[in-house]
Amino acid sequence: MKEKYILEKRIEKGDFNKGGEASSKLKDLLRKLGVDSAVIRKTAIVTYELEMNIIIHSEGGWIRAAISREGIQIFAADDGPGIADLEKAFQPGYSTASDQVREMGFGAGLGLVNIKNYSDELKVDTKTGVGTKIRAIIHLV
């Protein structure tokens, strides 16, 4: 069955001005649906980190979100370059971000760490030179 998304948004490479718009929109949608505020906050953090990762590291991609009985599912898919060392990427403090990105307060090597800490389920598929697909689930209760 094809997933019905409550949010689907294209994220452009390096588009810091719009960074956070997808997460903000999802947050508003969930609030209107009456989702618990702690669940909304977890979802917002995970989505925001995923969104910023696409902006900072990839060649552009998509953020999509769906609600099912499992919880809130967030999908991040991007085109290249992929994560060369996935184990390292989950180590707090490990980062490949540029100085410019760091000056903005990002690229501290905590993005994936936060995503993991706030998600109830997390799956990362990455291929060097191709791209990265991440699915995060936040349970409703």
Binding site: F16, S24, Y48
Partner: peptide, 12 residues
């Protein structure tokens, strides 16, 4: 920068 406000927004 505006990302500070975005970040604040995410966690209320």
């Amino acid at each position: 920068n505006p990302q500070v406000v975005r970040t604040a927004e995410m966690i209320d």
